[in-house]
Design a protein around this nucleic acid. Structure first.
Length: 583
RNA sequence: AGUCCCAUGGUGUAGCCUGGAAACACUCCAGACUUUGAAUCUGGCGCCGGGAGUUCAAAUCUCCCUGGGACUACCA
């Protein structure tokens, strides 16, 4: 009996044994799922999983956010739960509607389905205010007239305890009155704040009577001028999660130290029936960083403002908009994000890992086409001048469903400059004087002559002969050639602008700078090269955003911003792996 | 310097709770195959921060040390 037959038989007769074995050998899971599994067992959330992505609408999303979105969404999916998109818009001064729209578009593009749960912290302002009143009534919050400087000074330091504010003992009635008048707009910005009454000697600075509300006479993108007091993030965030019934609130590690405060707030509050309010579980994880990239918002803004790149959607940026324009698929981003895994240690992922997932996805989905990026003219001297052949080629080497297309072959062609060398090294597979190579899908050709410019010595064209017996690329006599190169018929081309993108930074970790250096010092001056190239004519009719593999050249996308029928623009998404170039 | 968090190949993640020959992915290096120097397939290199202790046995438990990070906004 063959092993597979034994396997099959066992599968039929004793499926439970095999199943058991499988679960035994199952790899461990990440710490977040482990926590969720615990909750599933204990029944803490009644078997419910509800996650969320809570951006502040003050900038563009980048791959780090995409990582968070993908994890939040896929964890919810995995447990049959839900995922919310919630804007943490508690600071009217920094936030804009423009970012709300771009973030919604980005999240949708990433494929995280928040259904009808597009939510705003600002929609909870009333509830948040009532919670604050509740705290005041319990004697757990007070209005403080101290200045910013006084509050800072009395907070203490990392090693010294703080001191109580002289307003800390105001009566509940006075606090209630003052807080209401703060809300009513009686006081100017900065004149008063509402503070929680916790412990000024607490080792965690965030617990030293944190500010809950500040006065801000400003117009909010969502609530307009309705409010002039705004909740602080620490007050709002945990309560938003609570209000939405978020079970597992994932956030980055720097908020770990905030968790005791969120927990404290939630534990003090009760609903209209006097029951404790819903208590989410916050879980902190480490952010994603990628080599040869800078993801901090502040620095990305500089790169844009100082014109190192052409805007937020520049294909060299790892913003979601930039990746989309670059032609990277959301599936690649998702596969990458999930493969990285979650943990609490600082991570700096190799760019090559991301590149692997980009190619992995593109390879499967992209039809192959012929292009010549840097043309070199080739004349097949023994090919008739008045003939043109139609060659049928498969659009994808392994996926026949992608169909076929016709390509013209004629006497005058272009090949890649790189594919010809006058004095090649020993292990050069491509065309050289006296050498025979295969024109992919077409014929074997042999280089007979080089035509040079008389003055510059530059190679202008090369003359080859073809073997008519090798049509289709196979020699009836069985002889082999070491190289196969791509080509394009000179009479059947259109010119396209091709933008070749390379890494934005030349250093693995641009933030690792010497004294007096700036991360912008290692910006790659050659991160963008624009050339005019020849591509197959049918490409002028494809939709912007369409992706192709230019055979042997890499993956390219029709630019969604600049490309038109008249002026076709391709972005190079990524090169093919090239084990030859490495040597 | 107080409180908290983190430490496994080059990179990232499992293994740690419940001690028993350190696994997976990417990278890198070989080779096979190839009408893309691609893809695919096969093989290989390479890791438990340090020191004590407990134990027949420690990546795993205990203690100490070292290194890295977060926190001193009326930002999020």
């Amino acid at each position: 009996m063959k092993p597979e037959e034994i396997q099959q038989l066992a599968q039929q007769k004793y499926p439970e044994i095999l199943h058991e074995k499988e679960s035994e050998t199952q790899e461990g899971t990440d710490f977040i799922r482990a926590i969720i599994e615990e909750h599933m067992k204990s029944g803490r959330f009644g078997g419910r999983v509800h996650t969320r992505f809570p951006p502040e609408p003050n900038g563009w999303l980048h791959i780090g956010h995409a990582y968070s979105i993908n994890w939040n969404y896929s964890i919810a999916q995995e447990y049959g739960g839900k995922f919310n998109l919630r804007f943490d818009d508690t600071n009217p001064v920094t936030e804009e509607e423009e970012f709300v729209q771009s973030i919604i578009a980005d999240v949708k593009w990433l494929g995280a389905d928040f259904e009808d749960r597009l939510l705003f912290a600002s929609d909870y302002f009333e509830q948040l205010y009532e919670y604050a009143v509740q705290l005041v009534k319990k004697g757990l919050a007070f209005v403080d007239d101290s200045s910013v400087e006084e509050i800072r000074e009395m907070r203490g330091t990392l090693t010294e305890t703080g001191r109580n504010s002289s307003y800390r003992d105001r009566s509940i009635e006075e606090n209630l009155d003052l807080f209401e008048r703060m809300k009513a707009g009686e006081f100017p910005n900065g004149s008063k704040v509402l503070r929680a009454k916790i412990d000024m000697t607490h080792p965690n600075l965030l617990m030293r009577d944190p500010i809950i509300y500040r006065i801000l006479h400003a117009t909010h993108h969502n609530t307009g001028d309705k409010w002039c007091i705004y909740p602080m993030y620490d007050w709002a965030h945990g309560l938003e999660d609570s209000l939405e019934g978020i079970t597992h609130s994932l956030c980055s590690i720097e908020f770990e130290i905030h968790r005791p405060l969120y927990d404290w707030y939630i534990d003090q509050l009760e609903d209209e029936n006097g029951n404790p309010i819903f208590h989410s579980q916050q879980i902190e994880w480490a952010k994603l960083n990628v080599t040869y990239m800078v993801l901090s918002k502040r620095r990305m803004i500089r790169v844009v403002n100082e014109k190192f790149v052409d805007g937020w959607d520049d294909p060299r940026m790892l913003t979601v908009a930039g990746m989309r324009r670059r032609g990277i698929t959301s599936e690649a981003v998702r596969n990458f994000a999930l493969s990285v895994g979650v943990s609490k240690r600082e991570k700096l992922i190799d760019m090559s890992t991301f590149e692997y997932f980009i190619r992995d996805d593109l390879d499967k989905r992209c039809s192959r086409v012929m292009s010549v990026l840097n043309p070199l003219k080739v004349v097949i001297t023994n090919y008739p001048e008045d003939i043109e052949e139609q060659i049928t080629i498969q659009n994808h080497p392994t996926n026949e469903e992608k169909g076929n297309r016709q390509v013209n072959f004629a006497r005058t062609l272009y090949i890649e400059q790189e594919d010809f060398m006058e004095n090649p090294p020993e292990d050069y597979y491509r065309l050289a004087p006296g050498k025979e190579v295969r024109l992919k899908y077409a014929y074997f050709i042999t280089c007979e002559k080089i035509i040079k410019d008389n003055e510059t010595g530059e190679i202008k064209e090369i003359h080859c002969t073809y073997d008519p017996e090798t049509k289709g690329g196979v020699a009836p006599d069985g002889r082999k050639v070491s190289g196969t190169i791509h080509w394009i018929s000179a009479n059947h081309i259109i010119e396209a602008e091709v933008r070749l993108y390379d890494r934005l930074y030349t250093k693995e970790n641009p933030m690792d700078t010497e004294e007096g250096e700036d991360f912008t010092d290692c910006i790659n001056p050659d991160s963008l090269t624009v050339i005019k190239s020849y591509v197959e004519p049918f490409l002028k009719d494809v939709e912007p955003g369409s992706r192709f593999q230019f055979e042997r050249n890499g993956y390219f996308v029709v630019d969604i911003v600049d490309s038109t029928k008249e002026n076709l623009v391709f972005n190079r998404i990524i090169t093919l792996r090239d084990s030859w170039a490495k040597k």
